[in-house]
C-alpha cells in the first residue's frame, strides 16, 4: 500500500458518499444516470468476488464491503425511494448499457490474467469500470442538468483517477514484478473518458451559471 493508492481509495469513497448524501438530502436524482450507478454496483460486485476467499488486509476487506454497500445504496435510492425515484430522468437515461456489459464480458473472456471464474470477472469489472461513465456522459449531454452532480463530486472523482495513475507509476518504479497491464491500460482509458465527462460537466456548469445570471 502506498499513500497515492490510499488517497485514491479515500477520494473514490468520498465521491460516492457525496453523491449518496446529495441524493438523500435533496430527495432528488435529477441529472444522475441510474445506468451508470448500476454499472458501478456491478463493477464492485464482480470485482470483489474474492471478498470471502482471499484475505489481503482488514482495510482491503472493509473497503470492499463499503464500496459494495454505498454503490447499492445509491441504486436502491434511485429505484425504490418513493421521493427520489420520481425525479429520475427515465426518458433521457436511455444509453443501452446492456451492450456495454456484454462487450466487456466478451473482452474479459478473451483478455484476462488467468482463465479462472474470479479472474475473468475481475477483468470484466476492470473493463466495465472504464466505460461505466458513458450513460452519465450521454445523460449530461442531453439534459445539461448538473444540480445533483456537485463540483466536489467531480473533483473527488478526478482526484481518484489521478492518484491511481500516480500509484501505478510509483509501483512500476518501486516494485520489480509490478505488471498490471489490464488495470493500467483500462484505467488510462477510464481517465480519458472521465476527462471528457469533466469537460461536458464544466460546459454545462458555465451554461447553467450564465442562464442563472441573466
Amino acid at each position: 500500500m502506498n499513500i497515492f493508492r490510499f488517497a485514491g481509495d479515500m477520494t473514490h469513497l468520498i465521491s460516492i458518499l457525496i453523491l449518496l448524501l446529495k441524493i438523500y438530502a435533496t430527495k432528488s436524482c435529477a441529472g444522475i444516470s441510474l445506468k451508470t450507478q448500476e454499472l458501478y454496483a456491478l463493477v464492485f460486485l464482480t470485482r470483489y468476488l474474492d471478498l470471502f476467499t482471499d484475505y489481503v488486509s482488514l482495510y482491503n476487506s472493509v473497503m470492499k464491503i463499503v464500496f459494495i454497500a454505498s454503490s447499492l445504496a445509491i441504486v436502491w435510492c434511485m429505484r425504490r425511494h418513493p421521493l427520489v425515484r420520481r425525479s429520475y430522468d427515465k426518458d433521457l437515461d436511455t444509453f443501452r448499457h446492456q451492450y456495454v456489459v456484454l462487450a466487456c464480458f466478451v473482452l474479459a473472456l478473451v483478455l484476462h490474467e488467468r482463465f479462472t471464474f474470479q479472474e475473468v470477472f475481475w477483468a470484466f469489472s476492470i473493463y466495465l469500470e472504464a466505460v461505466a461513465i458513458l450513460p452519465q456522459l450521454v445523460l449530461l449531454q442531453r439534459s445539461g442538468n448538473v444540480d445533483n452532480l456537485t463540483g466536489q463530486y467531480v473533483l473527488f472523482l478526478g482526484a481518484y483517477r489521478g492518484l491511481y495513475i500516480i500509484n501505478w507509476i510509483y509501483r512500476y518504479f518501486t516494485e520489480d514484478h509490478f505488471a498490471r497491464w489490464i488495470a493500467c491500460v483500462s484505467g488510462l482509458i477510464q481517465t480519458a473518458l472521465y476527462a471528457d465527462f469533466f469537460y461536458y460537466y464544466y460546459l454545462s456548469r458555465i451554461k447553467q451559471d450564465t442562464i442563472m445570471r441573466l
Binding site: 474474492d50 482471499d54 489481503v56 514484478h177
Partner: peptide
C-alpha cells in the same frame, strides 16, 4: 508466488 496472484488494489 501466491501473493502475486491476489489483486491487492481495490
Amino acid at each position: 508466488d501466491e501473493t502475486e496472484n491476489v489483486h491487492d488494489e481495490l
